[in-house]
Design a protein around this nucleic acid. Sequence first.
DNA 1: GTCTATAAATAGATAGAC
DNA 2: GTCTATCTATTTATAGAC
Lengths: 212, 212
Amino acid sequence: MPAPRHRRAGATSRERLFSAAAGEFAARGFAGASVDRIARAARVNKAMIYYHFASKAALYRDILRDMFEAVATRVGETARSGMDPADKIRAFVEAIAVEAEARPHFPPIWFREVAEGGRHLDARTTGHITSIIRALGTIIAEGVATKHFRPVNPLLVHGAIVGPLLLYFASGGVRNRLGHRGVTGAVRLDRPTVVAHVQRVALGALESSGHE
Amino acid sequence: MPAPRHRRAGATSRERLFSAAAGEFAARGFAGASVDRIARAARVNKAMIYYHFASKAALYRDILRDMFEAVATRVGETARSGMDPADKIRAFVEAIAVEAEARPHFPPIWFREVAEGGRHLDARTTGHITSIIRALGTIIAEGVATKHFRPVNPLLVHGAIVGPLLLYFASGGVRNRLGHRGVTGAVRLDRPTVVAHVQRVALGALESSGHE
DNA sequence: GTCTATAAATAGATAGAC
DNA sequence: GTCTATCTATTTATAGAC
């Protein structure tokens, strides 16, 4: 199940469908996505979807799995690297940001799947998600052992990192709509600012020299 | 446009439709929601939807507006209260949490609408959203003036608060699915822990005695 | 692997009686 | 305000030719 290469002319029909479907699911959600539109966007006959995939749901599940497999791989490498704990936290944040940028469909699809209660997550995908959280837990435990961090539930830290990052990457459309009305002065956010802020916030939550 | 009372037997057909639709949109998204199912859940004839609302889209827009109106009102009161800036930030976090709990459909619907690029937000609703962010900006400016906070883009702080909170309230289903597989030790998170963590994180981002 | 044609179900919306 | 009946379009999916 390799990640689909970008929409090159030479991409296989399966790759073209995969990539077109990711865009369609991101923009319209699982129920809102139409296999007709996916096929049209991929410039492939609709029947080919059912040649390559068992169903619309199976195609969607494959896209979910591909997303989390990529993140789990990258995050696992970070956790096993030689950096000190604080840099590993920074790298974890950066890894999510890199993956969200490389696959623009990732943040909206994940938000939508959360809203669906994770109905479409198969066993392999929940395994990837678990391994992402476990990697973060390992980094935190390491920092606690070296007295750099205080012990914090990894899910809390995960939420404080992934929540704001996904919100930023998925909310371009909404921020545009707010900006159009000229109401908020500072609707401009850029990626480095957001990533730096999330890194700061995550480390702030973990610092053993905490207040409170 | 009053908030729908809970599904009492005596509720008007409009209120019943409103409340049933909120649940349906939260669970299935705008495209996935079916007016037939909404009518059935509300125990009301389908034609009544078109008697009370211009269309499925208009009904959905009303639900969005109702959500953000409630949050904007509560947050505005917080900003105008007599608390000191740090307590106002804590109250802001609490306000989002209270509203998310009072309307369980709010977090999933908001995630989905973000993914849709805010297509269904009308002018009044974007106005409410803007006023929420402006209220937060006012609180921050106040803290900066009294030397308690450093200046931070309100949108960054907003993301660091709303992202994790919505993720927590919307992700019960996903967390259950991870927990079922027994993989993550500590999938248990409770509301007070999450709210306290988000409050701590938000204040950490604003503290003028910052590192870095 | 790729296509056409089509089945079968469901969608949003409305007309019109009461 | 509430109902039945219905129109029209679109949906996922498949059968079968090439």
